[in-house]
């Protein structure tokens, strides 16, 4: 199989629940080794799109093509039930199906979570949780990592360390990354491509292209503290 076969290709992907259209004719492809960031305002359908890619959200229309034998690694935003189920970190990693304790320890250490094996999942800080989740996702030697807001709730140094780790792992393994993010600075610095979603794809392309796109500015320009540059916009665009 040629190496440039897309890992995932969505064509006119739509998701509806009842009368609400959550995703409207979304088309894109993820190529091997690519780092793509998915940005968009709250309620834009980012989590819906991720669920559709994973297969937990039924697709109403369009097609979703996965390269045969594609191995996915996924990190959820958080573990909603971690407060109730007693579980040590090493056991959590083992639940991915990895039986070799040494490999589990090495992967945790690689992700900067060495020494946490015996800790309870519920005692981890936000940054530690993300590292453990990443270790579990990498345990399966994925072709594609899907990360759902991996830096949510992290302070800036922890966030910077996480992105540095992700960069190192990409360089070592060549894994493709599809990441939901709110931190626009990091998105701009770390991604090959950016997809801006608001129910439909508003714009996509290299970070520089997207940053100059009127629809991007319409969505993000007003929050000047986050946007890559300040902007006083007068452009008219098709979003309401």
């Amino acid at each position: 199989m040629p190496t440039n076969t897309p890992l995932i290709r969505a064509e006119n992907l739509s998701v509806k629940t009842g009368r609400r259209v959550l995703l409207d004719a979304v088309s894109f492809a993820i190529l091997p080794g690519e780092a793509i960031s998915l940005i968009g305002p709250n309620g834009a359908g980012k989590t819906t799109l991720i669920r559709a890619l994973i297969g937990t959200m039924p697709i109403s229309d369009g097609t979703l093509f996965r390269r045969p034998g594609l191995r996915l690694g996924y990190t959820p935003q958080k573990l909603p039930l971690e407060q109730l189920i007693p579980m040590q970190v090493d056991r959590f990693i083992a639940l991915s199906g990895e039986r070799d304790k040494t490999r589990r320890r090495e992967m945790l250490a690689r992700c900067g979570a060495g020494g946490l094996q015996a800790a309870q999942m519920m005692d981890l800080s936000g940054g530690e949780t993300q590292r453990v989740l990443l270790a579990r996702a990498l345990m399966r030697q994925p072709d594609l990592l899907i990360l759902d807001e991996p830096t949510q709730g992290l302070d800036q140094p922890a966030e910077a360390r996480f992105y540095q780790l992700l960069g190192e792992i990409r360089a070592e393994t060549g894994v493709a990354v599809f990441m939901v993010s709110h931190d626009l600075h990091m998105v701009m610095a770390q991604s090959d491509r950016v997809i801006c979603l608001n129910g439909h794809i508003c714009c996509s392309g290299t970070p520089g292209m997207v940053a100059r796109d009127p629809s991007y500015i319409e969505l993000f320009g007003q929050c000047a503290g986050l946007a890559p540059y300040r902007h006083h916009h007068h452009e008219h665009c098709d979003h309401d």
Partner: peptide, 20 residues
């Protein structure tokens, strides 16, 4: 194992190829 994984995160389980 599937029951524990689905308890922790249904999305994680599905991404790893499990059946919800």
């Amino acid at each position: 194992r599937g029951l524990l994984n689905a308890t922790l995160s249904p999305e994680l389980m599905a991404a790893e190829g499990g059946s919800l």
